[in-house]
Design a protein around this nucleic acid. Structure first.
Lengths: 234, 234
DNA sequence: TCAAAAGTGTTTCCAATACACCCATGG
DNA sequence: CCATGGGTGTATTGGAAACACTTTTGA
């Protein structure tokens, strides 16, 4: 809370606030996170979450959108605020808070343009993360847990797949997010009974095994289900 | 994210960060929220969420604990961070972010000592809230939704009841949090089968109807269940 | 013809739901 | 004896979980 004089607020306007984003992608049957390598002190050369200071005229969600757009040139992406962090010593330059978001974007084909303080950027397998700058390991973990929670409650994550996909693709996605294996028949039954995917009629090609049917995500059906609330437990 | 020169950070250390707390209580079969009436500008005389600026050497959770303790003299209370808000114009004195928490405390018997910028404090029925200062209506709403989400996932909220309580008390608590009525027999079956309450052997006294059995919350059993994860859908 | 992944049904079990009457107390 | 809330059981249904073999393709 904030008050006017005689309780002066002035001494409190000394903090910096940033947004940091855990950008999840999915490729090669594993969950990935986009990290950037710092090109400046502190933590120079360490990997870190993409993030920027919130600008004077910007609200938090807009700042998150901006960071995401500047890095990936993608817009209108699934983005959810998760938590804020503000340990007094988390940044050597002063009192710095950060608001963490996670986002889901299809990995395959977007350009990545690190800018500002970053020298490069790439996806890391969630199982093979490098040491991270600041408290970003904790931030990332918190966001991963939130993603898992979400996935258990509803079929999130179509954003991580190409426009058409096989049910096995979808299953590996869930398996790599949840970190456990699922029964194939039960998984299919569940997804198909929800009616949130529809067959395109196409098949995979050039695979050295029986080609899978391809599906697409039925967004309108999905929205309808979210409206009236459903539970999803694979 | 934060960087060192040549990307100077200095211009960013200009924000204030506060914590605001939605303190839920339960009395008279209805869910209540503790609000304080502002004694200073801006929004003088309006009701607002209890909150304070985060101090220089304090992390967010500690600041929340402090606000709660200063107001209610209670410690070790259930407290959960929910979300952060930072619209550029939300405070007239400058760029001010707030991190919202909610807490659950038994209402009945704690003193309330408003201090600093507040002239008084009292509980409001969740159905009869006054106009709130700043963006606190939105903050409160977000926290209420989080509480509802939590309650649907697990039997939270024993903190809101006296140490011994009847199953009907527990049921009204759930009903007022969720805003819907529940079937008595099914509710009891569910709660008792989870084994998270145990009968004390005592009965209500001085009630002009059949006295209810009193129960207490079995905390160790509860923790054990949380560990291995359970779902709770009343 | 082999390897690799796709695809497919049934049974079992448990939890969710719906539903109506008698009981103990104070006034 | 009446009003008030406390307390109890059963039948039904639907979703969750367990489980193994056949099919199609490219190499």
């Amino acid at each position: 809370m904030l008050e006017a004089s005689p309780y002066s607020l002035e001494p409190y306007f000394v903090s910096a606030v940033s947004v940091d984003i855990v950008i999840f992608g999915f490729e090669n049957k594993s969950l990935r996170v986009l990290l950037v390598q710092r090109g400046v002190e502190p933590f120079i050369n360490d990997w870190a979450l993409p993030g920027e200071m919130v600008q004077a005229d910007e609200n938090l969600d807009d700042a998150a959108d901006r960071v995401l757009f500047e890095l990936t040139s993608m817009n209108e992406v699934y983005l959810e605020q998760v938590a804020s962090f503000g340990a007094p010593k988390r940044h050597p330059a002063g009192r710095a808070f950060t608001v963490a978001y996670y986002s889901l974007i299809g990995t395959s084909a977007h350009p990545v343009s690190p800018n500002g303080w970053a020298q490069r950027a790439r996806y890391f397998d969630i199982e093979e993360l490098p040491k991270l700058a600041f408290d970003h390991a904790k931030v990332l973990n918190t966001c991963l847990e939130r993603l898992r929670e979400r996935v258990r409650m509803r079929p999130i994550g179509f954003e991580l797949l190409p426009r058409t996909f096989s049910l096995s693709d979808l299953q590996s996605l869930y398996e790599s997010i949840l970190g456990e294996t699922l029964d194939k028949r039960n998984f299919r039954k569940k997804i198909l009974s929800m009616g949130i995917v529809e067959a395109t009629g196409e098949l995979q090609s050039n695979v050295s095994h029986r080609p899978a049917k391809l599906y697409r995500f039925d967004e309108s059906r999905y929205e309808a289900l979210v409206e009236k609330g459903f539970s999803f437990t694979v």
